[in-house]
Amino acid sequence: MRRSAVRPILGAHPGLILAVLDLAGLAIAAYLSVVELQGGVPVCGPIKGCEEVARSEYSRIGGVPVAVFGVALSLVLLTLAVAWWRTDLYVLLLAHYGLSLAGVIFEAYFMYLQIFVIGAVCIWCASYGVSLIARFVIALVVWLRGQPAAVDSARP
């Protein structure tokens, strides 16, 4: 099993940073899910747009609020980040990278819908998208710069 020699970012293990970002994404998605499932609309404060996005037909996939999928994705990513942080198994980082990339693709599509179809932007959704992009970029950068130092774990 391959382990990566991890270089810290800002003095912290990148897995820990990813886990913190995953937690932030999880909190956003959980809030949106609870509000949507209760039939309400998220509070946007002075920034308009949340209501329109929440009430649009694009806010659900197969009848399930998009935010619920965000919760599921964040939970999986959080698990991978923590597991990578604790084990340094690079396959976990790679999985985190792949899943966050898939999420970024959907976020890009959803942002397109908000801007060009719905005509309103939900700041919560945008924040989740930004956190997802950050997770994707960090995972990619860490993986790329960690490759030359990869070593085989010594397991008898």
């Binding site: 037909e57 694009y58 996939i61 197969g62 998009v66 790679l94 999985a95 990278y97 792949g98 899943l99 990339l101 898939a102 999420g103 970024v104 693709i105 959907f106 599509y109 993986w143 790329l144």
Partner: peptide, 23 residues
């Protein structure tokens, strides 16, 4: 390489999700 393979898989999964989500 793992990165390319995972990227390709992620792109396919992302595109699949978008296709499924299309109204």
């Amino acid at each position: 390489s793992p990165l390319v393979l995972v990227t390709a898989a992620a792109l396919a999964i992302g595109a699949g999700i978008v296709a499924f989500a299309l109204p």
